[in-house]
Simulated assay, not measured.
Amino acid sequence: MAMHKRAGIIGVGSAVPERVLTNYDLEKMVDTSDEWIRTMTGIVERRIAAEGEGTSDYAIRAGRIAIENAGLKPEDIDLIILATFTGDTPLPATACIVQDSLGCKNAPAFDLAAGCSGFVYGLAAADAFVRSGHYERILVIGADLLSRVTNWTDRSTCVLFGDGAGAAVVATVGEDEGFMAFDLGSEGSGAKSLCIPAGGSRHPYTPEDLAAHRDKIYMDGREVFKFAVKIQGEATERVVAKCGLTTRDIDLVVPHQANIRIIESAVNRLGLPMDKFFVNLQKYGNTSAASIPIALDEAVAEGRIKRGDIVVTVGFGAGLTWAAGVMKWAF
């Protein structure tokens, strides 16, 4: 078995719903305002999946585009990793539905649950699989329909979330390209700060849970904000140092698109100009595991990333978890 290969991204894709939900729409639903949402989050609008659609619908679209952009056929993919916590059903893994629909007949498939950090966790896993020689061409997808688990009566959270999917094909690349380092972590003591309280094996749904919206996302906004502001900068500094680089070597940071104030805190901590950060949260809000791959796809389309660039991806989310990665862009 071949060892010590270099792995990197060779194709990206994304898919978002057609329906747009603006801040002005939310003003009619809860006690909030466009000015407050923009000031506190930077979000202007978000995309909402149509009734009857599932996470797999968008994962399939994003995955198909990524495979095509990588110049591959579905049967060339030999593993699928789907980062999500809003699968179509609790069982089976939604990755298996994606595998069948895409025609990736040679690929085993599994879901990965790390909240908004999930896509970068998936990249780290794919990197290890390719470098070890176990798999050669891996489709990593981040997809979530947060509208399905949002309490639309809670003005503190419903303004934040949207739906979508993004994907990347990870494969062997040149010796001086691809993934350089990862920094993954968890702080389980903060598990209850961002969670869905009911619906699992410990607390199955009851009618009372449904009435109290305990089947929807609960977030301690203050605690999650403090964690995110701290860890985003720290993880970025650590992962860059692992490569023997400094923040001055970074060409573009693609952060989790949760809140503009969190991104601005990283700008200040890292001493980088704002134009070194790719931001599209104003259009989509927080799409959880989909946010970084959607941003990567748009950054490539806009010419913000070119071959040889040093790109940092960094996310944080439920768990509490974080994940940062450094790569030299390979296409």
Rank of each mutant, 00 (worst) to 15 (best):
A66R: 02
E175A: 13
I310E: 00
W322R: 08
A114T: 09
Y205A: 02
D34N: 14
D209M: 07
A323W: 01
V169I: 15
E237L: 11
D31E: 15
K306G: 09
F277R: 06
A125C: 13
S101H: 14
T55A: 04
T86R: 10
A168I: 03
D88S: 08
D209L: 01
G11H: 08
A241C: 00
K5D: 13
E45Q: 11
G115C: 11
R148I: 09
I262V: 15
E298A: 10
I80Q: 14
A289H: 04
N286S: 05
D57A: 06
G164E: 07
A171Q: 02
T86N: 12
T172D: 09
V149A: 07
V20L: 10
R202D: 01
I60M: 06
D183T: 10
L320T: 00
S201L: 07
C243M: 00
I141G: 02
V120R: 03
S14V: 00
P204S: 11
E234F: 05
A83Q: 09
A50W: 00
I67A: 01
E302A: 13
L270G: 09
V149H: 10
L123T: 04
D183H: 15
I262S: 11
F129C: 07
V229M: 13
N151C: 08
V326M: 00
E75M: 04
A212W: 07
L139C: 06
A93K: 12
K28F: 01
G87Y: 01
D251E: 08
E35K: 10
S201W: 12
D78W: 11
D127H: 13
I250M: 01
A62N: 14
R202A: 10
A228S: 12
F225M: 14
I65V: 14
L102W: 14
D251F: 10
T22P: 08
S132G: 15
A241W: 00
N286D: 08
G115P: 09
D215S: 02
L91T: 14
G63L: 04
S265V: 10
I43A: 03
T287F: 04
N259F: 04
A258W: 04
A143F: 03
G142Y: 06
D78A: 13
E53I: 03
E175L: 11
G185L: 13
F278V: 03
A198G: 06
L82K: 05
L281C: 08
I37L: 08
K105Q: 15
A301R: 15
N286K: 03
G13V: 07
T287Y: 11
E187Q: 12
A50L: 01
P273V: 05
S291H: 03
E208F: 07
E136F: 02
V311Y: 05
W329V: 00
G142L: 02
R19V: 12
W36Q: 06
A228E: 00
L194D: 12
G199R: 02
V44W: 06
I10S: 06
E27H: 02
I9A: 01
S132W: 04
G118W: 13
G190N: 09
G178K: 13
A301Q: 14
R248N: 15
M274K: 14
I48F: 06
M274C: 06
L210T: 00
A2Q: 09
R304D: 03
N280I: 03
D111A: 12
L21E: 13
